[in-house]
Design a protein around this nucleic acid. Structure first.
Length: 541
RNA sequence: GGUCUAUUGGUGUAGUGGUCAGCACAUUGUCCUUUCAAGGCAGUAGCACCAGUUCAAUUCUGGUAUAGACUACCA
């Protein structure tokens, strides 16, 4: 008998959703859609102290950007609503009390401070494995150690208390993980986890088991960091008598930092200069650079490329295939093919994927995608047709949507000849291989360019004629411009390389990039001549 | 410290009791070319280590090492 596949992605709104979480959401989404089941988003906001304003909206927006629409969520609703645990708060206490009644849980009156002190004391004695167990020889104040009457008295005094799971010792707790196979723990290693906090909120453990049960979740796909608490969850299912409907577990390998040292965290974005969040996010109540987090979207990543890349961080189709649309991922995805070992975040591969996706788009499609990455005034100045041409010129040399503007500023502004990148290249040219040429002391690019120009006196004179020729031609297509210039070069017995290098420099302020003829065709006659004149003026100064 | 999980080139991965250990990214060279890319071709580079099982082990078993996760009234 096949249960309906119902999976949930259960983020906690404590900040921006990070990319490992996005992958978890993806895998959940894929499994749900593959089995025509439901993909549910449940917000796990049981820790009021870690609540971050806007985090939930961020999570939903990020999923929407990627096209991972949930079937049920706080926004979309659903027949198992509410989908926000804080809105379900009244529900949990009765379940915790139920466990107390059947002896699977108990009241504990120890304060946080007492326990903290105890832990510190034990650590000072060299005992790092402090656990809270009802059967341990500590003077814990809980309903296991106290008499029923004492417990009632404490409760009657309205003393704050928690409800803890009662874990019996000497028991093997085993379960089968879809990715890791048979996993087992000895209950002696578990401590009596808090189920209901003194503020009346459930902990993750209680809330997640109760909700998964009530929401009829069939598979729990989550990060490997949850593996050690899974036996606690198994115990909860047993305690409630729900073992028949316990979901299947699949613990995903972690996405590690690029250097392999630990799991990818928000600080790593700045540290390695890579995005680790889907969208930009500004952390409230945080000052300085740490507050701003740059997202994949704002880097100029395509959702399809991000999804494709992410799918392959920890999963493969074992046939060498790498390109998948979301629909294709749905049909090919298999939990069994998920890798077991932690995977380092491979940003180079992410870049490459993005480039591949950008290259495949039609120019018209790209034009629309580029537009938002231009400054507002430029967006008004240029039509889609122009942007499409720019896209065509740049699409094979660019990794991100933002690069179309950053790498192709000359398509939108008169060239900046004093640009720093140009400086290095020019210095190299003028040095002509000499290790230490004093002329390198020439400070400005202008001096260096002049020096270059002077090196080719014939060229200088010829250019005047060439510009005139360009001015006279009516046909401003790439091929015709090519023929025109090449003819000219042959006639004057000039070097193609040199002529085109100067043309490129004059038109774009660059020493490399798009085809010179394509560039001229894109600019059109008026702008091309304007730029050549601008270059001449610059040198005349 | 304890528990758990993992280990194929620099990275992501495929795969098998007998393979020239495959692919991709990155990297190097080369072709194409006005440059830079893109693309083609070629190259460098890998089964963590030690035992055991076996005619044979990268593949199975055990141990070691290393790495990571967890070890909260956080998720």
């Amino acid at each position: 008998m096949n249960k309906t596949v119902r999976v949930r992605f259960a983020p906690s709104p404590t900040g921006a959703l990070h990319i490992g979480g996005v992958r978890t959401a993806l895998y959940n989404y894929l499994l749900a859609h593959q089995h025509k089941g439901q993909f549910i988003v449940r917000i796990e906001d049981t820790d009021q102290t870690r609540f971050v304003a806007g985090a939930e909206q961020y999570i939903m927006e990020a999923l929407a950007w990627l096209g991972l629409q949930p079937d049920e969520s706080p926004l979309a609703g659903g027949s198992f609503a509410p989908y926000r645990q804080s809105d379900r708060k009244p529900l949990y206490r009765q379940y915790a009390e139920q466990l107390v009644k059947n002896g699977k849980a108990y009241y504990a009156f120890d304060t946080e401070e007492e326990l903290k002190q105890l832990r510190a004391d034990e650590e000072a004695k060299g005992n790092k494995g402090f656990r809270y167990n009802a059967y341990a020889a500590y003077p814990f104040r809980n309903s296991v150690n106290l008499s029923a009457q004492e417990t009632q008295e404490l409760l009657a005094q309205n003393l704050p208390y928690v409800i803890r799971l009662r874990v019996a010792p000497h028991e093997i707790i085993a379960f089968d993980d879809l990715i890791r196979g048979h996993v087992q723990y000895n209950s002696n290693e578990l401590d009596d986890k808090v189920l209901l906090k003194s503020d009346g909120m459930p902990t993750y453990h209680l809330a997640n088991v109760v909700d998964d049960y009530l929401m009829q979740i069939s598979h729990v796909i989550r990060g490997e960091e949850w593996l050690p608490s899974t036996p606690t969850h198994v115990l909860l299912y047993r305690g409630f008598g729900w073992q028949e409907s316990m979901p299947q577990f699949a613990h995903l390998p972690l996405i590690l930092r690029p250097d392999g040292k630990g799991k990818l965290s928000k600080r790593d974005g700045a540290k390695f200069g890579i995005p680790v969040f889907p969208l930009d996010f500004v952390l409230p109540n945080v000052e300085g650079d740490d507050a701003f987090i740059k997202g994949f979207r704002e880097w100029g990543f395509e959702p399809a490329a991000v999804l494709n890349f992410l799918a392959l961080q920890g999963w493969s189709n074992n046939d060498n295939r790498e390109f998948f649309t979301l629909d294709e991922l749905i049909s090919h995805f298999k939990i069994e093919n998920i890798t077991k070992a932690g995977t380092r975040f491979d940003f180079d591969k992410a870049k490459w994927f993005n480039q591949q996706y950008l290259m495949k788009y039609d120019n018209a499609v790209l034009a629309a995608k580029i537009r938002p990455f231009l400054p507002a005034d430029l967006q008004a100045q240029h039509d889609d047709n122009y942007l499409a041409k720019v896209a065509n010129a740049l699409k094979e040399r660019v990794y991100f949507l933002a690069d179309y503007y950053n790498e192709g500023k000359y398509f939108f502004h008169l060239p900046d000849f004093e640009h720093k990148d140009l400086q290095a290249k020019l210095a190299k040219e003028t040095n002509e291989g000499k290790k230490r040429d004093l002329s390198n002391a020439l400070k400005t690019n202008q001096d260096n360019i002049k020096k270059l120009v002077e090196r080719y006196p014939d060229l200088k004179a010829a250019f005047v004629e060439l510009i005139a020729g360009i001015g006279e031609t009516a046909d401003f297509t790439e091929t015709h411009l090519h023929d025109l210039v090449m003819e000219f070069i042959q006639k004057h017995q000039l070097k193609t390389k040199e002529v085109l290098a100067f043309l490129r420099l004059a038109l774009s302020g660059q020493m490399q990039g798009t085809s010179v003829f394509e560039m001229m065709a894109i600019f059109g006659k008026t702008e091309t001549l304007h730029r050549l004149q601008h270059f001449a003026n610059y040198l005349a100064k």
